[in-house]
Simulated scan of single mutants.
Amino acid sequence: MELENGASFSIEALMENPGFRAWVLKEDQREGEYWKAYIAEHPERREVIEQARSLLLDMNEHFTTDDMNAAAVEQKLQAQLERLGSPEKLGRNSRFELRWTSGYLRLAAASILLLLVAGIAWWWIQRPSDLYATNFGEWETVTLPDGSRVNMNANTTLRLDDHWNDGAIRRVWLSGEAYFQVTKQSDTHGLFQVITDDLTVEVLGTAFNVHSRGEHTEVYLEEGSVNLELADGTQGAMQLEPGEMLTYSKALSTIVESGPASKELTTSWKDGLLKFDKTPMREVLQEVEDIYGITFRLEDESQYDRPITSQGVPMEQLEVTLPILARALGLTVELENDIYVIK
């Protein structure tokens, strides 16, 4: 469901939007196309969207029924906020007012209370720097507080655990694709975890790539060692050796590929190139759509499974990428009504 014209844009408004909830909770794949296009048109709103998405996922994880008393929750929320600090320190009014316009917001308030008690709300209030995000067609390299370096592909978000420095495990949540060079903590031997919707990657100090979009998650290990655990708990911990990749299919709820893989093909995006070796055209087009937030339509649908090989399609600008991609496909690409039609 689209946002109404003139409607206020806020975390609350997003969480009230049925289409937004359907997209975040993966209840309707069609909503994904709308929100992908919306973020591309309004990149300045991406951070608010990601905050609403993270809160909604946290809420959905902990609550399944609406049995909270509004007045009691509001009173407890106010008490927790006062303990966190003065209004000046929090950068907002001391009075925290809740609008009980729907049962879903009651759940949101209950979730916020849980996050406050657990300490996660400090991230929402005080630590916006713990959320890293790239827009469509944008790449970034960030250094985490422990010195680990992360190369972020376009259309990617990375969120740090609020308790990053409090314990032995360093946790980050990833949506999109990123290449990690993790610094080993020799003093604490602290583990480093990358958490996606499908699985958790656990390492000590190593270099690896995680691609988590759509219906599958891929993990490629360049050096060191990693342990993998599926989110659904259907399989015990698995290990990868350097040069191996594991692919998990959400649609099939199973591991569809595991074994040796090409580092050059898997991590070439860090160098600004997309490389393919007998890759189905469907996957090639999906990769470019994810990076730039655009939509392709192939006139001859029988071509979707055609294998594509390319030694390098530059990613810096869409205007450069498309002509070279067209040559690699042996076809032409034309823009028609905001859709790139391949003929």
Rank of each mutant, 00 (worst) to 15 (best):
L298Q: 04
F208A: 10
E287T: 03
K184D: 11
R297G: 03
N337D: 13
V182C: 07
T247M: 11
Y304M: 14
L90F: 07
Y38H: 05
Y220C: 06
I294M: 01
R213C: 02
Q181H: 11
N153E: 02
Q317R: 08
D146H: 09
Q193F: 01
D66Y: 15
R46S: 01
K343H: 15
S94V: 08
L55P: 06
K76E: 15
V284A: 07
E336I: 09
N227V: 02
A231K: 15
E82K: 08
V256M: 06
G224L: 05
A328K: 14
P87F: 10
M245P: 05
L273V: 03
F136R: 00
L273G: 01
H216N: 15
T183N: 09
R106A: 14
G32D: 12
A7T: 15
D305S: 12
W122Y: 13
V333L: 12
N209H: 14
V226I: 12
M281P: 06
D162P: 07
E336M: 14
Y292R: 05
L191D: 13
S262M: 12
S175A: 11
Q311T: 05
M281H: 04
E88F: 09
G103I: 08
E289R: 03
Y179W: 13
L158H: 00
F276N: 04
N93T: 12
N337L: 06
M281T: 13
M315Y: 13
V320Q: 13
A154R: 00
V201F: 03
G205P: 13
G190T: 03
V150K: 12
V320R: 10
K343N: 10
F192A: 12
A231L: 02
D277G: 02
W23H: 00
G312V: 13
Q29G: 09
W35F: 02
A52M: 09
K36F: 03
N151V: 08
Q78A: 15
Q126A: 08
E138L: 08
L105S: 01
Q311M: 09
Q303D: 00
S94W: 14
V284L: 04
Q317E: 01
T266I: 08
P314F: 05
S148K: 10
E283R: 05
S111V: 10
A71E: 14
M315D: 04
Y38I: 00
W173G: 15
S302V: 13
T101S: 07
E12K: 15
Q51C: 11
S253E: 15
L240I: 06
I125S: 08
D58Y: 04
N5F: 11
M152E: 01
S268I: 10
T206F: 14
L318K: 01
K263Q: 11
L329E: 04
L285A: 03
A328H: 01
